[in-house]
């Protein structure tokens, strides 16, 4: 299938792709942020923001954005100025670049790279460099500890994430994200029941989702920014727009990893595997709606986890990954491979 953005004029197509992706990148995290404000509030029996934008505080996030834009930008005297200033950008840009390969509807993707999932996982892990830069450059003890914790956590949970995705690659026999959605569309369990990969790859989905939470330092894996111990980890010294960019990077990361989970395990833009979408623009819109709905549902589950589980202690967190998740991920790969060859 061709991208709907594959126009004859290459430069026009390029411009359109960049503009649309920037638009998605700047609006989708706002939706997630609003859900976090209100969802978390209601899970804790409170109202959340109610004033800005008249309807249930819907204008709160744009208002916050404007506020951040006007705030003084304080760089501590002891900090390494350049590294400190560049860190939020380094954390933010990879999340935007990953979107280049994520398919959001039939024909609705910027590029269908052959190395799709591999590219996405590789680029999304560049963001941690921003965290490390911030932690080191702040010249603050809390930041440094937070940064080391973040690094240890990210290397521990990178493996379950990648190995969880490898199971899907084994089954779909392609690295292309569009190819994975199409392979999933024609998949049937035991040759009869069409189901998304979430069913045969349930272990993979669980591994991918838990590891994604840890990669994003979302609770219960928010040890790197544990506010009761190390203030706010690598973000302790940040103010104003630079701090806002770290927050945007977190929400954009939630959207990106949920989008990847949607593509890998939940059937992408199809309502259900085997059920075709109508042809033409209606199908494209519907497909986008379905995939965005799945993405938002997954981010809601992430927020739900935040309200449900207490934070893991640092050593428990490491042991959970090395002694439980990684062996489980390897067993999962072996299981899927055996089923592929002999099943």
């Amino acid at each position: 299938m061709e991208s709907v953005l594959a126009l004859d004029n290459v430069w026009l197509a390029l411009l359109l792709k960049v503009v649309l992706l920037l638009g998605f990148f700047l609006t989708a995290p706002l939706v997630v942020g609003y859900i976090e404000h209100k969802g978390l509030a209601h899970m804790q029996s409170r109202l959340g923001p109610m004033e800005a934008g008249r309807f249930h505080g819907i204008g709160q996030l744009p208002a916050d954005g404007v506020k951040f834009l006007q705030k003084e930008d304080i760089i501590p005297a002891a900090a390494d100025r350049w590294v400190f200033s560049l860190a939020p950008g380094v954390a933010l840009v990879p999340a935007l670049v990953v979107l280049a390969v994520v398919p959001l509807g039939p024909g609705l993707w910027a590029e269908d790279l052959d190395a799709g999932i591999f590219f996405a996982l590789a680029v999304s892990s560049v963001g941690v460099l921003g965290v490390l830069m911030a932690a080191w450059a702040s010249a603050n003890k809390y930041s440094l500890m937070g940064g080391i914790r973040a690094a240890a956590q990210l290397i521990a949970y990178e493996l379950p994430l990648v190995l969880g995705a490898a199971g899907v690659v084994l089954q779909a026999q392609t690295l292309s994200l569009v190819g994975i959605v199409e392979a999933q569309h024609s998949f049937t369990l035991l040759g009869a029941v069409p189901v998304p990969y979430a069913v045969p790859q349930a272990v993979g989905l669980a591994l991918f989702f838990v590891a994604a939470l840890a990669e994003l330092s979302r609770p219960p894996f928010d040890m790197p920014i544990a506010d009761s111990e190390i203030i706010f980890g690598h973000m302790t010294e940040y103010t104003g727009l630079r701090y806002a960019f770290f927050m945007l990077a977190e929400y954009a990361g939630m959207v990106v990893l949920s989008a990847l989970a949607t593509v890998l395990f939940l059937g992408g833009w199809y309502v259900w595997p085997g059920v075709p979408l109508p042809a033409g623009p209606l199908g494209v819109l519907l497909g986008f709606g379905v995939s965005f709905g799945k993405i938002v549902t997954l981010t809601f589950v992430m927020i739900w986890f935040r309200a449900t589980f207490p934070r893991l202690r640092e050593d428990q967190l490491q042991r959970m990954s090395w002694l439980f998740l990684i062996p489980l991920a390897l067993l999962n790969i072996v299981g899927v491979a055996v089923a592929k060859v002999y099943g």
Binding site: V18, L69, E72, D73, G89, L96, V97, E111, F245
Partner: peptide, 25 residues
Amino acid sequence: TVAALVAAGIALVAVAFALNRLIRP
């Protein structure tokens, strides 16, 4: 496209901070 997105990301950060510089104390 990937390269253009990287450039767009850098431009986004640069523009935001330029704007920030104009209106912040």
